[in-house]
Design a protein around this nucleic acid. Structure first.
Lengths: 215, 215
DNA sequence: ATCTAATGTTTACAGTGAAAACATACTAGA
DNA sequence: TCTAGTATGTTTTCACTGTAAACATTAGAT
């Protein structure tokens, strides 16, 4: 394939369009995304994307799916660094989750914003989002097995963790946790995640996560 | 004021428009709301609303503000029924919060959806949302004073509670907690809220909220 | 009763998602 | 290698949206 700039066929418009769309979403937010604007960015006609996506919702669904896949990867990587230590693994998982949300706030909002997922019961999307959830579920299961966490259905514990981290992520994105310094914000996030761990811990944990580091 | 149907002036278009907009939002979601459609619903010209709202964002901001006010009222009413009992009050507050989100999912999504609050730093909106938060903060403060909750900054505890309940609300709206029966869902929500209370409790609480009812 | 400001209407424009008809170029089968 | 056939991209078009500008009506103050 030549790098001829004026070629009629783009080559790989589908993925190029998704990348360009993500960029615009990151800048202006999901609700201001215009397919035509993305098409202009790529120097392509306004109806070209319709050869690759049924409609706008279809594109957003694919982007959301992509986001869940990356989130699953990021959280899995983080948790796997602390294979044996239930609480450190869960903390690392949570912080990786929040880091993802902080780095890609608009992408994250798209994943849970309701544009997707309302009517479109996309099978692949649900499956991929479950992949992200399974990372949490697995850590919860390990924790219950080891006796570190309360003897409850791991599904309940995982749901609880996910709700907490999701709530933090959303409010963080909305600017509710803006602090003077990134360090202060980091500390706030850790404190809140730690409170969640206290809630599912079998033993009474200290009030603050810092002592954990000396364990 | 007569009930003359063909009067030129509507009488109270501003609030009528907000009510009609809320109805449409409840049915179709925020992102599909069209000012013109609402205007048609009211049999009024498409530019009439612009005499009362600067633009679409302004309307949405006012609706979000209205939502926060109602949420604050609902949670305050619920918590005030258990004035002395920290955990029961917090559970009631949380369940009232979730009930609001469940009854008005699209309104709730509007409040936190980011359409509002991104660029528009509306003073009144922020103030009203803080009113809703203060209900939680006050309960957290009481709990710390009584020694029921861990001796931490009540602001941290309140933030933690809000994040949890917000995360549950969002995921519930997105359908992640759909159960076979409403009773099962109610139980799931209670269990998750309870886990949050365990996290901020000074003492080690039981694994499940049910024993609380016999206290 | 009259003037003025508040409220509502008509008209207009640019931007959007999407369908239909048409154009081009890559690829597989002869 | 030639030639369909199909995948991909373009042009044109439509209905709809937010919103500005100019105009019309009416309520309320003087």
């Amino acid at each position: 394939m030549t790098l001829n700039k004026t070629q009629y066929h783009h080559g790989d418009l589908a993925s190029a369009f998704m990348d360009a769309a993500i960029k615009r979403i990151a800048q202006q937010g999901v609700e201001k995304l215009s397919l035509r604007a993305v098409a202009r960015d790529l120097g392509v006609s306004q109806t070209a994307p319709y050869r690759h996506f049924n409609d706008k919702t279809h594109l957003l669904t694919l982007l959301a799916q992509q986001g869940f896949a990356r989130l699953a990867q990021a959280t899995m990587d983080a948790a796997s660094e602390y294979g044996e230590d239930t609480f450190r693994a869960l903390m690392a998982l949570g912080m990786a989750y929040l880091e993802f949300a902080q780095k890609h706030p608009e992408h994250y909002r798209l994943m849970f914003g309701g544009m997707v997922k309302r009517d479109c019961h996309d099978e692949a999307l649900i499956k991929t989002s479950m992949t992200a959830f399974d990372v949490i579920l697995q850590q919860a299961s390990y924790g219950v097995e080891r006796g570190d966490l309360i003897q409850q259905d791991p599904l309940l514990l995982a749901r609880s963790c996910w709700a907490k981290v999701h709530g933090i992520a959303m409010l963080m994105i909305d600017g509710f946790y803006d602090q003077n310094t990134p360090q202060e914000q980091q500390r706030l996030l850790e404190d809140m995640l730690w409170i969640n761990l206290r809630g599912i811990s079998a033993q009474l944990l200290p009030h603050s996560p810092s002592p954990l580091k000396s364990v």
